[in-house]
């Protein structure tokens, strides 16, 4: 049992850092501008992240599994550790970081090390999604911004009531965003452990069935929630008054657009529905919530006539598509070598 906990710890650490960083993408402005209390935000965020992870986490995780099925617990430990260290290092360097990109890089590192062929089609699908997710987010934010503006202007709603509705909106959209984040990003945290999951399926009282993967995701969800409660307040305060200075109403638009983007790339139900209607379905891929938010903010800048477009941020994002996976892959490869040859642990079958 102790060995299992030890090997899962890197994934849990990755989950913690995801919760610490990404909760701010959803509730940052709401908490930073004091529209919602941190405790309320953290509670809603944690509950819905866990729900999203357990209920809808399988889709995006499956894509990571296709990219490289890490089949030994020690190997999965190193892959998650390499991703976590990359995230930590890039956060310290002040670069916009994505756990999705870090974990993909680390899996490719494992593929190289274990001489497993990397599925090019999966990789193209994943990278394509990274490029498209901020674009989709920007388009959605652009549309929602215009709709919201029109509604607010036409309804002649009183400032006080607008404030009330914005609070409610931030709570609901925040819950949806947290669910989407959990569903889309749990694969990054726990996906690599699926093939070596130490858990057995359990059924509670003959009604409630929890598969071994769902138990894994529940654990990961709790780790994310822990990150939300212990560290995200600091990040939220920075987001609220720092890089993206948004008004509560624009924050609502940003969070809604980004959450829908995350949901599109995570919802198995939507995927099945579109496929059954013979329509092109969104691939289920873990994307970066931070980049979706940056996309939304860009969309709003465009809607306002292109003012304050931050091109530096855009170039940093595209740099992240290459630099993060590359750094993570190299780190994973080196760490796997050490794990196998120094600590004498089998890292692949």
């Amino acid at each position: 049992m102790l060995t299992i906990i030890f090997f899962l710890s890197s994934g849990l650490f990755l989950g913690w850092s995801l919760g610490a960083n990404d909760a701010a993408n959803i509730f940052g402005t709401a908490v930073g501008t004091k529209m919602i209390k941190f405790k309320t935000a953290a509670l809603i965020c944690s509950v819905f992240i866990i729900l999203g992870a357990v209920v809808s986490g399988a889709g995006a995780s499956h894509t990571l599994d296709k990219l490289g099925a890490v089949n030994e617990l020690a190997g999965a430990f190193i892959v998650a550790l390499a991703a976590a260290i990359t995230v930590l290092w890039m956060t310290k360097a002040g670069l916009p970081v994505s756990t999705s990109q870090a974990i993909v890089g680390a899996i490719i590192g494992w593929n190289f090390f274990s001489h497993t062929a990397t599925s090019i089609s999966s990789l193209t699908k994943i990278v394509g999604t990274w490029v498209f997710s901020p674009i989709i987010s920007a388009i959605l934010a652009y549309l929602f911004f215009h709709i919201t503006k029109r509604i607010v202007e036409r309804s002649k709603i009183h400032l006080m009531r607008l404030d009330f509705y914005t609070r409610i909106g931030l709570l609901i959209v925040g819950a949806f965003g947290s669910y989407s984040l959990g569903a889309n990003n749990i694969g990054n945290v726990m996906g690599v452990f699926i093939n070596s999951s130490p858990f057995q399926d359990i059924t509670l009282a003959g009604l409630f069935h929890l598969s071994s993967i769902q138990q894994l995701f529940l654990l990961g969800g709790i780790a994310i929630a822990f990150g939300v409660f212990t560290y995200s307040k600091k990040v939220m305060m920075t987001v609220g008054s720092g890089i993206f200075k948004l008004s509560p109403v624009t924050a609502l638009v940003v969070v809604l657009a980004s959450s829908i983007t995350l949901f599109l790339f995570a919802s198995q139900g939507l995927h099945n529905l579109l496929t059954s209607l013979h329509l092109p379905a969104f691939p289920l891929v873990p994307v970066s919530s931070s980049q979706a938010v940056v996309g939304s903010v860009m969309g709003i800048s465009l809607a306002k006539g292109g003012r304050n477009l931050n091109f530096k941020k855009l170039s940093q994002i595209s740099l992240g598509w290459v630099a993060t996976p590359a750094a993570s892959a190299i780190l994973a490869y080196i760490a796997l070598f050490f794990m196998q040859n120094v600590f004498m642990q089998s890292v692949f079958k």
Partner: peptide
């Protein structure tokens, strides 16, 4: 804690 954004202005 109402209208935190525009409270000062109001």
């Amino acid at each position: 804690m109402l209208i935190p954004e525009s409270r000062g202005d109001v």
